[in-house]
Computed example of a mutant assay.
Amino acid sequence: MANGFILLEVLVAMSLVASSWVGLSNTYQGMILRLSQLQEKRAELRKEMDRHELDILTAAQLNHSNQISRKLADESIGMSRRSRPISSLGRTTHKK
Rank of each mutant, 00 (worst) to 15 (best):
L45C: 11
K41C: 02
K71C: 09
L8A: 15
S87A: 09
D55H: 10
N63D: 15
A18V: 09
A73N: 13
G4K: 02
E75Y: 07
A60R: 05
M1R: 10
S69Y: 01
R46K: 09
R84G: 06
Q67F: 10
L35M: 11
Y28F: 01
P85R: 13
E48I: 08
E53L: 15
I77H: 14
L8H: 08
K71D: 12
N66R: 15
I68C: 05
L11S: 09
M14F: 06
I77R: 14
L62H: 12
T92M: 09
R46W: 02
R51K: 11
D50K: 14
A18P: 02
T58H: 11
R51F: 06
G78C: 01
N66P: 01
E53M: 10
Q67H: 04
T58F: 08
V17I: 15
I77E: 15
Q61K: 11
V10N: 02
R84T: 09
H94T: 07
S88V: 08
L62P: 02
H64N: 07
K95E: 08
A43V: 00
L24F: 04
M49E: 06
K96Q: 04
S88A: 07
E9G: 03
H64D: 02
K96Y: 10
S20Y: 07
S69G: 00
R91E: 13
H52M: 09
D50G: 00
Q29I: 00
